[in-house]
Structures are given as C-alpha cells and as structure tokens.
Design a protein around this nucleic acid. Structure first.
Lengths: 209, 209
DNA sequence: CAAAATAGGGATGGTGCCATCCCTATTTTT
DNA sequence: AAAAATAGGGATGGCACCATCCCTATTTTG
C-alpha cells in the first residue's frame, strides 16, 4: 500500500495536493499535516513513500531562507527513504538548487501546478532523478465553470475553449478520447450535450464555442 | 444566474476556490483568471456578483503593500457593484483594515480557509457587512485520505477522527446527518462500512477509530 | 461538386454511489 | 440488572453519470 504525506498549512491547497497524489496512484493512503509538529509525529510513527512539503509553515519566517531550509531538512532527515517534493508559491532557481543539494527530488512552483502535472513530475523523477517546474503564468483566457454541467461535460467545454486557432474540433475529440481513455464519439457527444445545456440556459459561451 | 470571478495565480488554489464558490450557490457560473490582465478583460465585458481576489499576482511584487492595494483597487473600481473577497496567504490585520476601507467585503487568510467556510463568510457579509478570518493553525491531528473509500465514507471517517474526547459516536452521527442532510442511521452505516473496508485491507486506523 | 466536418438530436445498458430499513451480538453506562 | 451505545452485517430502490451506437440536416473545406 502506497503511503504519502502532504505538509502544507493552506487547507484548500493541502487537500488539492492530496487529491493530486491520490490521482497518481491506484491504491494509496494520503495524510495531510497542517504544521511541522503534526508532520514530525507522523514521520516518527509511520513509513512514507512520498512526502510533499511547502516550506512556508506556521511558526517559521517565510522570508527567511534559513527557516525554509530547516523545515525541509528536518523532514528529509526524518524520512530518508522517501521521495521528497518541495512545493512553494515563492519559487526561484537558486532555492531549487539548494533543496536539490540536500536531497529533494522535485521543486515545484504553485503557479502552473495544475491537475495532472503531479503525475508528470513523478515520471521526471523516475527517469531523470529530479523534476524542476518554476512558476510562470501561461493562461491567456479564463477558466469557465458551470454548475449545470457534469464533470465530463465540463472537461469537454474546457478543452474546446482552449483549442488553438486552426485546430479542428475532431482533433480535440481525439485528444479528449486519449486523455480520458474513452471513444472519440463519446467525447463529441459530451461536448454537444454540454453546449446544448448552456444554450438552453442562455449562457454566453466561452470563445471558440 | 449568479456569476463569480476568481482571480488567483496558483492553479490548484484557484480551482479549489472556484469549487467553494460553486458549492455556495445552487446555479452559477464561475470564471477563473490567472492574471490581472485576464481578469480585467472579463470585468470589462461581463457583470459579476462576486469577485474573489488574491493580491499576490504575477507581475507584482508580493512584498510591496502598494502593489497589493493597487491590484485590489483596480478590480474593485472595475466592478463597483460586486461583492469583493480578498484571499491571501500572508494575511495580517492592518492589511485587512486597509482593504476594508477601499471597499472589500471580506478578508480571508488561506490557512484555515477550509471547505465550507466560504458559505459562512457569505453569511457574515450579509448579516454583518464584513467578514474577517485571519490565518491560524488549529489542527492537532493529520487528515487521512483513503483511495478505497467513497466520498461519504471518507467524510464519516474524517468527522469521527476529529471527535473530541468524551463525545459519543451517536452525537457525531447526528452532526453528520445535519451537515449532509441525511438520516443519522445512514451516517452510522457509512462509518461502519468505511471502517470495515479499512480493516479488511489491514490499514492502521486513525486515532479514535 | 464531392467529401469532410459540424450541429443537433434519440435510445441504451452498465455501474457506482446514495439513502434507507432491517437484523443480531457485544460492550459500556447508568 | 436494565438501558443505551457500539460493532457487524444483509438487502433494497433510486438515480446520476458514463459510455456507446444510432440517426439526419447543414456547413465548410478540398
């Protein structure tokens, strides 16, 4: 049974990261710790395969490089056999190098850390030994979220809204089919159903229909 | 149709906040913007009832108080009729006062901003006019997340694990029944089913069974 | 023009989860 | 000892979503 620990004080972010970890493994247990104290207790009593760490924890100065390193260092020493992934909002390359030197396997900026990226990071780690993803804003259009849509329908609208100019809808359906492991016809169906729902309710559709 | 905009650069946090907004309204559309530019475009073209803002955006200095105020001020001026909710990781009371003065309806620290809190914040706003929730770490035990459990079962385990000493299980079942608007017997059933699943798989159960 | 892509529907079975009601032992309180 | 709480199950119907296959117009592209 795969075991992971997420150390992050921001509740919504912690839960989101726990979701990402869960999505990357078939069967697993994921623990979430709000403070270094809670994390330390768990690290003493249990074994973990992966530990995700945000170095900006309560009780430490988030602007002090020393404090940040101390947090990560303490956790790494308490779980030497685990894979350690550092996640931070204020990321920069030199800090990434520093954490790498003390044993971290990945350094991720929170901006751009989207659903699904975590699996790619794990791939990076197993193939290259280290994964570095610095923050950068890349979106040019907003995300849309409609409460009337089912998850599948929402996904279809998302992907179609981000369609690059010149790309055929058919290609998006194929892409969606690949990503969700379903039939391209089904993907097309979800998109059409979603569109019909939004039209019926008189929603202003996102660009690209 | 209720319309909301979430301005936040950290993707997972933005999506989580969008979820919170969605959970607070029956039918709604929620847009998410990674940058102030995207947000500005949407604010020009559409009406919004609620705007959620993290002032620490790409292109601005997160340590500069002037930059932070400028971001929020620009958004408030671009949507004077909306309710504005400021969410930040580095929260403090004086900044809260500052944002309140320029028209924000709420100031929330990310630590402690948990699923469901958003609805309470909206209640605060409609009754008291302003909602202030500063960050503070309150957890004493970790969160557990098991991939084998259904959402309902997970919820049951969560609540039982956080049971205060001396509190009867029956009371937790009632509480769960209230919160989820189901029968207390059903809540008990979910808990027992969840426990059985974990036992069968040989999991070390969280404290408090 | 012919072919491909798109818009817009209907019908279907499967499945997992929700929610409820039922039952019997065993343990703990009072 | 009586009452309440807890542990541990079985069976059930409903329902939302998933996934597939089918169909016909209309529009766009080569």
């Amino acid at each position: 049974m795969f075991r992971a620990l997420v150390v992050e004080d921001q509740t919504l972010m912690r839960l989101a990261l726990m979701n990402e970890v869960q999505a990357s493994f078939e069967e697993c247990v994921v623990l979430g710790a709000e403070t270094l104290n809670i994390a330390t207790v768990e690290l003493q009593n249990n074994h973990f395969d992966i530990v995700v760490i945000d170095p900006g924890l309560p009780g430490f100065d988030p602007t002090s490089q020393g404090d940040r390193v101390a947090v990560v260092d303490r956790i790494i020493e308490a779980s030497p056999s685990a894979i350690h992934i550092v996640v931070t909002g204020s990321d920069n390359r030199s800090e990434a190098d520093g954490f790498r030197r003390i044993g971290a396997a990945a350094y991720l900026g929170k901006t751009g850390l989207a659903p699904g990226v975590f699996s790619d990071v794990l791939d990076d780690i197993s193939t290259k030994g280290f994964s570095l993803r610095l923050s950068r804003a890349v979106m040019t259009k907003p995300d849309y979220r409609f409460s009337v849509l089912t998850p599948r329908e929402q996904e279809a609208i998302d992907m179609m809204a981000h369609r690059a100019p010149g790309v055929k809808r058919k290609e998006i359906f194929s892409l969606m089919a690949d990503r969700l492991a379903i039939d391209a016809g089904s993907a097309e169906k979800y998109y059409k159903q979603a569109r019909a729902k939004l039209m019926r309710q008189g929603h202003p559709l996102p660009q690209g229909l």
